[in-house]
Every structure is written in C-alpha cells, then in structure tokens.
Amino acid sequence: MNSPPDTPSAERPAVSDAELLTAHIDGDPHAFSEIVKRHRDRMWAVALRTLGDPDEAADAVQDAFVSAYRKAGTFRGEAAVTTWLHRIVVNACLDRMRRKSVRPVADDELIEAAERDTPLPDQTIERETSMEVSAALKLLPTDQRAALVLVDMMGYSVEDAAQVLSVPSGTVKSRCARGRAKLAPILSHLRNRSDSGRVSSAKGDRTS
C-alpha cells in the first residue's frame, strides 16, 4: 500500500509511466493505480508544501489524480508523465488557493500529518524547522510559493519547474529570487542552526 514512490510492484517491473498511461487509456484497470502508487508521495509533498494544509492538500491531490484519470487521453507524450502529473497537481493547488484563501492552519496539525508515516530521527529540531518553513512559505504570493516548492524544496531543475508551471524559465527564476528575498529575513536564524548542526539554542546572533 505504502510502497516508496520509485518501487514498481513486482508483476510489472520495467513498465514506463508512459506505457502505463497508454495501458490505462486502453482500458487496463490496474495501470492507473500503478501510476498513482509510483508518484503519490511526490505529489503529496508538492501539494502539502504548496498549500500548507494537509486537508487542502489531500483534496487537491485527490482532485488531481481523478482529473488525471479522466483526461489521460489528453496527455500528449511530449512531456514526461511526471511533469504532466505535477502540472495537474500544482494547478489543482493554485486553483484552490485562488478560489478561497486557505484557512490558517495550526502548524502542529501540519507537522503531525507530515510525520504520521515518517517518524524523524530528531523530532524537535526538524519539527521546529519544518513549522517555521511552512509558516514562512504561507507569507509568499502563490506563484512564488509554487516555484520555490518545486525548485528549492523538491529539487527540480528550473526547466522542469517551468514546464510544470507552464511559464518560461526566466519567470521561474525571478519568482524564486523574489520568494527567497522575502524568506531570507524570516528564515535567516535557521542558517546558524543548520551550520552548527544540533546546537539549536539561541544562535540567532547574525552579524549586521
């Protein structure tokens, strides 16, 4: 059920995403669940980080997968299936954020949801950081947030993010730059923390 994203199930070892999607279009009732299984963790991470709210993220990912299931026929093969899926997920998130301002969420709730399945080695520091990051991200305009989630958090290349967001690479870069500029004062104290490893106390004494 909860296999890691890159482990295809035993009986279809070397089937590509594109082949699975074709099989789904041709009526294979299992093909699409395999796609879901492969990519849901990443899609979840993107949605959770973009929306900052586990309930909203769950709704967005569900909408996105159902929508992908329905409109598999419109997939045109020039982009990777993953890019296509990301695009659907990100759009579902952006739609949600634009339609209604997402309710402010208790950070505990977010972290709890985030860690339900992945207990972390050092709960306290990770938890604090994670909370601060998600709170800070919420201060950004949606476009900048989406770009930063993809590029800085998920580690996608600017080009991949541009494809997902359907904007030019330059736009992704400038959104990232502006987003980082806004986050820098908020998150700067974490810099020392990460520099000095576990010493989490009051090391926020940045020179100025």
Binding site: N2, P4, D41, M43, V133
Partner: peptide, 11 residues
C-alpha cells in the same frame, strides 16, 4: 533550509 525540510510520504 528549504531543501533540508523533509518531504513526508503521503499519509
């Protein structure tokens, strides 16, 4: 910091 923030598995 963003890169180091853990990306959780789907619950």
């Amino acid at each position: 910091v963003l890169a180091a923030t853990p990306t959780p598995a789907m619950p």
